[in-house]
Design a protein around this nucleic acid. Structure first.
Lengths: 337, 337
DNA sequence: TACATTTACGAAAACGTATTCGCTGTGAAT
DNA sequence: ATTCACAGCGAATACGTTTTCGTAAATGTA
């Protein structure tokens, strides 16, 4: 391994000078600087991140905290897509990414401790139980954090605008002539709460009265539970003309159930998804859905986290709402009056 | 930040002793050790990874190298699933994970340089262009590497047994009475080559002659291209009775095309997928497919890489083939003679 | 008793870098 | 001629560990 000392010896300059030259300090003369830099690259020099970190306390490393209950964290398309975008932007800005989890080695650390141990400059938090005291400890620590899809005091939040998403969907469905709209929603999270709120707000504004039994609980990414909810909806005396699903994937369960009842989409029953994943656009019929802007979410998260890290003193936490986009497919029938 | 020095002052022991005690060295007396350890945890001491690394050259950090052409790396369910399993096992064994990519900061490093810079103890390589000289440089370096789904000299490889997978599928299809089996395959990679080889081997053994036009090229994870191939197959004078797809997701394209032709699965035409992703099991009809054991792949990769890291001198590279499992759905019709 | 071995600990150096401060020489300003 | 400012560089220290080697006391051995 070639170090700054080797360059020092070979060039005749002191290690201080070499270090400064390599960091393009203005203290060092132009000629010397370029000479040293050239020599360094010829010798195959690369800085030692550990040594540098030890001195500067700056790791250029960001932590990613997410908890994958069911070990399926990364397999969840929405999150993995956000994470990928986060990664791309972070790398572009010169940061590496390390996963933060429970245990490292035999020690059982808290998230905060793990971040300290790895000297993360900042941490992005997603998909976790925000009531977990260890999560709270981390957010309230001196380490800059950013949360995705969850609002937390004193931490910047990047949020997919679920309120608007559901509203847009409802308005779109209404425009197509539907007045009996059912909503199958996911587990009780802040995201879900906002979606339900959006649903009610939109319906109120449109003067649609929604019977309670049009609102059905299910689970995200779980076609079975959505299928069950669909069944119950279809067998109502007064069934809806359009069903909104928690997400595109869950819709598969509904699709099967609708076929079970001998109905066809969109002629007999209309449906809408959520997320706008690849699948939704290749299904037949193409799903009308709301595409969350995962790319922007990840990118903004990275950019803002790095901003917070860089300007630690002056940075002011904020909330950034990221709008998605309505994708109009063929799963909603136009009803003529 | 509480350091070893603080403990040293408070306890009266030297930093050497404290360090040793914290690492449970046998050099230090039992009483002293437990006293120091207790004191350390009370004071909220946590080791500084950078300082430790600087001395020991052991980072307890593994690199993950994959290149996401199309920025969809993490979104690819197969890989993200393997990665997730890798992560879980690595963490269990006390290792963190850092992504290795092209650029960090403004410097444009090679993969090898990036690994050195971050002091990765080892690297797992997947989904990359194995002809890339930078990949080769990394594999041939002194850093232990492990490759997934690609055989490389002197590097341990964890491989999903695609030969067996396709064979099993063909045999299964044959058992159900099919003799006209078409195979749509993905881009030309070593994985694809093995799958095609497996297809031919199985057919030969079963004495099935496969016309060239039953072998169709398409792309992975691309329903459109698979749909196109399906169309061509269906419109042959002598169409197959069963079509095998490059992967479960691509099958969606075939499904649509089959419906276009007014045919139904499996009565008019049988189909098989590959991968065994969640989707395949909730589709109607449930897809007969071959489930790759992503969990084992990731787990073995982590375990072997760490083995290689730990026993750097004595470790002997090997190839580990991971078998999957045939999932029998309802997409293949039993033909009675 | 005399010697060898072991136990328990400390002093000091080292890992590779960044930074503070001081020194020297040059040219300009007084 | 004297002072001053400044550019260009080096010595020294520090970051928080681990590790080697040494030493003194305690223990074992003959």
């Amino acid at each position: 391994m070639v170090t700054i000392k080797d360059i020092s010896k070979k060039s005749g300059y002191s290690t201080s000078t070499v270090s400064k030259a390599l960091n393009s300090s203005s203290e060092i003369g132009e000629e010397t600087t370029s000479l040293i830099q050239k020599m360094a690259s010829e010798m195959g020099y690369f800085p030692n991140a550990a040594a540098r970190l030890l001195k500067t306390n700056k790791s250029n490393n960001l932590g990613v905290l997410f908890v994958d209950e069911m070990q399926s964290g990364l397999a969840h398309e929405y999150f993995s897509s956000v994470l990928n975008s986060f990664k791309v932007e972070a790398e572009r800005l010169g940061y590496d990414i390390t996963f933060i989890s429970h245990n490292i080695g035999n020690l059982n650390m808290t998230y905060y401790e793990h971040c300290k141990y790895r000297n993360c400059d900042g941490v992005v938090i997603a998909c976790v139980d925000f009531n977990d005291t260890r999560v709270i400890e981390l957010i309230q620590s001196e380490i800059p954090t950013i949360t995705i899809d969850h609002i937390f005091n004193d931490s910047t939040s990047i949020l997919s605008d679920n309120l608007k998403g559901v509203k847009d969907l409802v308005n779109h469905i209404y425009d197509y002539g539907h007045r009996k709209i059912a909503f199958i929603h996911g587990e009780n999270t802040s995201v879900t709460q906002r979606r339900i709120a959006g649903f009610h707000k939109a319906c109120n504004k449109l003067n649609i009265t929604v019977p309670d039994y049009y609102i059905k609980p299910a689970r995200y990414h779980d076609p079975k539970s959505s299928g069950l909810a669909t069944k119950e909806l279809l067998e109502l005396k007064d069934p809806p003309t359009c069903i909104m699903y928690p997400d595109d994937f869950s819709f598969i369960g509904g699709m099967n159930e609708i076929e079970n009842h001998g109905l066809s989409i969109p002629n007999d029953i209309s449906v809408a998804g959520y997320d706008g994943i690849y699948l939704s656009q290749v299904l037949r019929p193409k799903l009308s859905t709301y595409k969350q802007n995962t790319e922007a979410l990840g990118k903004y998260a990275a950019a803002n986290l790095i901003d917070a890290v860089t300007n630690k003193k002056t940075y002011i936490p904020k909330q950034i709402w990221v709008e998605g986009e309505l994708l109009v497919g063929n799963s909603i029938k136009k009803i003529e009056f």
